[in-house]
Simulated scan of single mutants.
Amino acid sequence: MTYSDSERVPTGVKGLDNLIEGGLLRGKTYLLTGPPGSGKTTLSMQFLIEGAKRGERVAYVSLIHDPHEAVKDIARFDPSVWVYVKSGKLILYDMGKSLWKGSTRAPAWGSVLFRIKELAENGKLSRLVIDPLTAIDFPTDNPAEKRAELANFIRSLEALGTTTILVAELTELDRYTEEHYLTDGVIMLHYFFGDREMIRALQILKMRRTRHGTGMYLIDFSEHGLVVHGLSPFDAGDEGL
């Protein structure tokens, strides 16, 4: 089945949409994972800014850091982000400030997911980023309950028509969690050292109902943000990148 352009949500990341039939499926939930410094927050913010530019209402939910720090970082590539923040098109929700106040334990799934669902519903959001999902704690002795809560949360967002990116820190390459199975797509960012410098790459592990690129693709930071190139990072030297 081929989906129309109206059912696709452009990511705002140059080169990425070419690999996923024009964008993410509207109203679905995706997992973005990778090691620290690989570009997860930058990619997520470009996704939100693209929505704001199209007149949508979007939100960045930070579970640890001050969300304004993420805006400061992306403003180096796209200063217009401040316009969307001030106009209310891009909502910054500092959930970490209240969740971690006076506590040394990670917040529980149930309360966090409920509050985020309320934000999406009341704010009539079309796009949502939760960063990082791995900050939320859940009893490891009851994985079935975690799967059920996350599944219900995803279904609730889909019912609202919200296209969501869940950002997660990469822990183990060969360990897959509930998010990998329950989300509609998984994008993984990598970096490794070449001959003289660090090389970044993007890999699409899963993208339901989408013909997607199956290789590992070179990415880098241009003056406009993260860019995905249509060549392997192992061929980067041959192309002069």
Rank of each mutant, 00 (worst) to 15 (best):
Ser87Thr: 08
Arg127Tyr: 12
Ser156Glu: 14
Ala168Glu: 15
Val129Ile: 12
Met207His: 04
Lys28Glu: 15
Arg57Gly: 02
Glu179Pro: 11
Asn142Ala: 02
Pro139Gly: 01
Leu24Ser: 12
Val83Arg: 14
Ala236Ser: 06
Glu197Arg: 08
Ile49Lys: 11
Glu7Pro: 07
Ser126Phe: 14
Arg208Lys: 12
Thr29Trp: 05
Thr29Cys: 09
Phe77Lys: 03
Glu223Lys: 12
Arg175Val: 13
Val81His: 14
Gly55Gln: 11
Arg208Thr: 10
Gly34Arg: 01
Val85Asp: 05
Thr11Pro: 04
Ala52Ile: 09
Asp17Cys: 09
Tyr3Thr: 04
Asn152Gln: 14
Leu32Tyr: 01
Leu19His: 01
Thr183Val: 13
Leu19Gly: 04
Leu173Gln: 11
Ile49Asp: 05
Leu150Phe: 14
Val9Gln: 01
Gly237Met: 04
Ala108Pro: 06
Arg26Phe: 05
Thr41Tyr: 06
Leu16Phe: 15
Lys86Ala: 15
Leu173Trp: 05
Thr163Cys: 10
Ala70Ile: 00
Met207Ser: 04
Gly39Glu: 04
Thr140Asn: 02
Ser156Arg: 14
Trp82Leu: 07
Arg57His: 10
Phe47Asp: 02
Gly110His: 15
Gly12Phe: 06
Ile136His: 10
Arg127Asp: 05
Val186Glu: 08
Trp82Asp: 04
Leu63Trp: 05
Pro36Asp: 00
Asp131Thr: 11
Glu69Trp: 03
Phe47Pro: 00
Asp66Cys: 03
Ile154Lys: 15
Ala70Tyr: 02
Asp73Val: 01
Gly194Arg: 03
Leu128Ala: 11
Asp17Val: 10
Asp141Val: 01
Arg105Trp: 00
Ala144Ile: 08
Pro67Asp: 07
Leu16Trp: 14
His68Ile: 11
Val81Lys: 14
Met198Ser: 04
Arg208Glu: 13
Glu50Cys: 10
Asn18Met: 12
Arg26Glu: 10
Ile74Val: 06
Val13Tyr: 06
Thr210Ala: 06
Ala120His: 10
Leu182Gly: 05
Met207Trp: 04
Leu160Cys: 07
Lys14Tyr: 11
Ile204Val: 11
Arg57Gln: 09
Ser103Val: 00
Thr41Ala: 10
Phe114Val: 12
Asp235Ala: 10
Val85Gln: 09
Leu226Cys: 01
His212Val: 01
Thr171Val: 13
Val129Gln: 09
Tyr93Arg: 12
Gly237Ile: 03
Gly194His: 04
Ile199His: 11
Ser126Tyr: 13
Thr134Gln: 12
Gln203Phe: 07
Ile204Asp: 07
Ala70Leu: 04
Glu69Gly: 03
Thr104Gln: 00
Leu133Tyr: 15
Leu150Arg: 07
Phe192Ile: 01
Ala52Tyr: 11
Arg175Ser: 09
Phe77Ile: 08
Lys97Val: 11
Thr210Glu: 05
Gly22Ala: 07
Asp137His: 00
Ala236Trp: 03
Arg105Thr: 00
Ala151Lys: 13
Leu119Asp: 09
Arg175Pro: 02
Gly12Arg: 07
Phe192Arg: 06
Ala236Asn: 00
Tyr30Ile: 01
